[in-house]
Design a protein around this nucleic acid. Structure first.
Lengths: 213, 213
DNA sequence: TAAGTATAAATTGTTAACAATTTGTTGAAG
DNA sequence: CTTCAACAAATTGTTAACAATTTATACTTA
């Protein structure tokens, strides 16, 4: 990971961490001055961080009221899955073969890392995988939109991937998808992707039901 | 139009106007102090306006370098069309009949206004139409993403809708699409939408070719 | 002239104080 | 007990000055 000296981004990343770890709860107000104090800065950079996070879909800013941790309901999260999948599906139509070797190697590495990753790491690798696959098409617009959808999904992947079995199943799906892409079977890849999205949604619903109890 | 007293939004809207009217050219640097002076404010609110516009895809902010009017190439714009269409397509699957009467009336009104609108107004109405259609599904995530794609498209619609004939053709397409939605023929609507996207892209390419000369 | 370097100017980043607004609290009136 | 108004506290919005950085300019040297 590269170190980013841009202060607002550092603060933004800390806020995301706090959201993931439930230091900040869903719907909670994020008070500028508190983060300013905890970083020993003024409110300016915190403000900018909040704008960045609004862009990433983690924060909802209401003028003169404040910034709140964005609440997603079940439907919202399924929609995020769905839109992300749809973008990825479209990007598959754009692939140019042969694929670039370095990009292939990167994704190979992600798949390989997935095999032994714990839940937290897996959630991040999962996001990386989908981002890299989308990036294969070289499409800037898709990449841009994707990166705006990804962050909320990472935070919820932890919930979805509750059991080792669901991680295992997700892993197998990724391996299958990647194989289909590598050998250029686009239509197969699209079908696998569609299945992957469906089972992702299903796992998500199951996890939510479980958490209710 | 409602008056918004939130200063950064007012400034943001002025910057968008300047971009549309080519007062600010594509790729040009937007200097904070100039807008601060022209509004008689400090740089703070201008800064926030630029954050907002970054979120809307109109501005690209590069840390410590500045804010630039975002450049879109032909491929980017086609992709924006495509993603917007894809979102709209997905939302069509979510429609619940009977449609809400007030929403139907609003869209009827837009279609009606389109008949006599000039190019500038038409571009805005066009965006409104697609947004309202998407909103019929009540899907917050789709609406959210859509509103992040829309602004750059408005600015370019003026280019696409150069001739009265292309406006006329676009108008007929919208009428057809809306009719199909109203009578609940979703699959027909999807087909019409797909055509609409394709012809939109085609008109865009033609416009670009023309402008080259 | 060309390339590189020191300097100056312009611009963005950050801060701390103040203004405006919203939110919370208390107490009086019904 | 509830409702409402006045006040107090907390928080966001804005400002102006200063710091850090980038960009432009002029100058030196080969």
């Amino acid at each position: 990971m590269e170190v980013d000296k841009h202060l607002p981004k550092i603060i933004a990343s800390q806020i995301v961490t706090d959201i993931i770890n439930n230091v900040l709860e869903s719907g909670e107000k994020v008070i500028e001055e508190r983060y300013a104090n905890s970083f020993g800065t003024s409110r300016g950079p915190v403000r900018e961080a909040l704008y960045i996070l609004e862009n990433e879909g983690m924060i909802e800013r209401i003028p003169k009221r404040g910034s709140f941790v964005k609440k997603y309901n079940r439907q919202d999260l399924c929609d995020l899955f769905e839109v992300r999948g749809s973008l990825e599906n479209m990007s598959l139509s754009r692939l140019k073969y042969p694929l670039q070797e370095d990009q292939v190697n990167e994704i190979d590495q992600i798949i390989s890392d997935m095999a032994t990753a714990n839940m937290e790491v897996y959630a991040q690798l999962n996001n990386d995988f989908h981002y890299k696959v989308l990036s294969l098409s070289g499409n800037e617009v898709y990449k841009n939109i994707f990166s705006r959808l990804g962050t909320p999904l990472i935070t919820l992947q932890k919930l979805v991937l509750e059991t080792p079995e669901s991680v295992k199943q997700s892993y197998e799906e990724h391996k299958m998808l990647w194989k289909a892409i590598k050998v250029g079977k686009i239509n197969l890849a699209k079908a696998v992707l569609e299945d992957h999205i469906e089972s992702g949604k299903r796992r998500f619903y199951e996890a939510v039901e479980k958490n209710k109890k």
